[in-house]
Design a protein around this nucleic acid. Structure first.
Length: 257
DNA sequence: ATGGTTGCGAAGCAA
């Protein structure tokens, strides 16, 4: 069975709902992971997605963060957060089994700068993600971890490596944390299909960065070996970054055979 | 260009 899996940091689902609905109708994802909904579970528009044929799960506190999964191939065994009593990690991960795949929608904290406490929080969150996957999943199963990682995997994924020396998103500890996920058994599906650099998923709103090509590839679809073997196409829809009131992120779309 | 923009919420923070 073919399956289209996508991830998109929508930067406020309240502000973006018309665009998101239009994008879904045009691109027909079977599963869509979203981040930064900035909504509560009460305000999340379950009905609007149901009208398009999608079941959904949302995990949000209403103001910051907020993650969701939409699926039209079934959505069962949903879990919010790291599935334990802890809640100091914020509303940054939600998981569900969709079409036989254990899907995770993740919003990795923005580290801000290497000397900021949010950077240490980011590394702690990534370590918790690794332990959570180890506890709840088997790399031999069909597992996908999709979302805004706020990490550029390598220097091909930033517009100018020289501009990022000493900056967050590219530091060794961040890339090592991502490497731990690769070592566990996940693969970056966009990179599986594209060796070239300069393909980005995020551009700052300011200073015309999108039109100047100053972006980063920080939104990723990671998947275990069994899913990677089914991957036939991976693209970043930069058209979705154009026009009026775009998110600052573009969706990543993967087709599985 | 230590600039610039957007979202939330009603000033300043987060990104």
């Amino acid at each position: 069975m073919t399956l289209r899996l996508a991830t998109w940091n929508v930067n406020s689902l309240t502000a973006r709902l018309p665009r998101v609905l239009g994008w879904i109708e045009e691109h027909q994802p079977d599963v869509l992971c979203m981040q930064e909904t900035k909504q509560s579970d009460q305000t999340f528009p379950v009905g609007a997605f149901a009208e398009l044929g999608y079941e959904s799960v949302h995990h949000g506190d209403g103001r910051w963060n907020g993650v969701a999964i939409l699926s039209r191939v079934g959505l069962v065994e949903a879990t919010k957060g790291f599935a334990s009593a802890e809640d100091q990690f914020g509303c940054r991960i939600v998981a569900a089994t969709c079409g036989g795949i254990r899907v995770h929608s993740v919003y990795v904290p923005n580290g801000r700068s290497l000397d900021h406490e949010q950077y240490r929080f980011k590394l702690a969150w990534l370590a918790r993600l690794a332990s959570y996957l180890e506890e709840t999943c088997d790399p031999g199963d069909d597992v996908a971890v999709c979302g805004d990682f706020n990490i550029a995997p390598d220097d091909r994924d930033v517009w100018d490596p020289a501009a990022f020396v000493g900056a967050t998103h590219v530091s060794d500890p961040e890339r090592q944390a991502l490497g731990a996920l690769f070592d566990w058994g996940l693969e970056d599906l966009f990179r599986r299909h594209h060796a070239e650099g300069g393909v980005f998923s995020w551009w700052d709103y300011r200073a015309g960065d999108f039109h100047q090509g100053r972006g980063m590839r920080i939104d990723l679809v990671l998947a275990t070996r069994s899913l990677a073997a089914r991957s036939v196409r991976a693209v970043i829809d930069r058209d979705a970054r154009k026009g009026k009131k775009p998110s600052d992120h573009a969706p990543v779309v993967v087709d599985l055979a």
